[in-house]
């Protein structure tokens, strides 16, 4: 089943991906068919099954509270597509 355009557009908005009208149409079909396909999971009764969170192999580990990083503004800013002095920039945000 094809997904409705509104859902595709709403999702694209959440994901901040601009779409051309032709892309919306293609996605309605593709996303729709993938979603139909994953619906087969509904065949399974998962009532008492715990969700898998991680593979359960690693042991929880905590880091010591020490300053071991930072103070490297050149690295942090080196790939910025647009910057002003020590700042990253974005189109003005009006609050």
């Amino acid at each position: 089943m094809s997904l409705d355009a509104k859902t595709v557009l709403r999702t694209a908005r959440l994901a901040r991906i601009g779409l051309a009208p032709a892309e919306v149409e293609a996605l309605q079909k593709d996303m729709g068919s993938i979603i139909d396909w994953v619906e087969q999971l509904n065949e399974l009764d998962v009532t008492d099954v715990p969700p898998m969170i991680g593979t359960g192999l690693a042991k929880p580990r905590l880091r010591e509270d020490r300053i071991t990083d930072g103070e490297r503004p050149d690295d942090v800013l080196s790939n910025a597509p647009d910057r002003e002095g020590p700042y990253f920039t974005v189109p003005k945000v009006v609050e």
């Binding site: 880091r63 300053i67 503004p73 942090v76 990253f88």
Partner: peptide, 30 residues
């Protein structure tokens, strides 16, 4: 592991983890 101190020159108390660089991973502070 970047400093949590308030203030400082802009973008100095920043690690590449904080800046969300590709492949950077969080490790929890005890």
């Amino acid at each position: 592991g970047a400093s949590a101190t308030y203030g400082g020159e802009p973008n100095t108390h920043v690690s590449l983890v904080d800046a969300g660089f590709p492949g950077m991973l969080p490790v929890l502070n005890a």
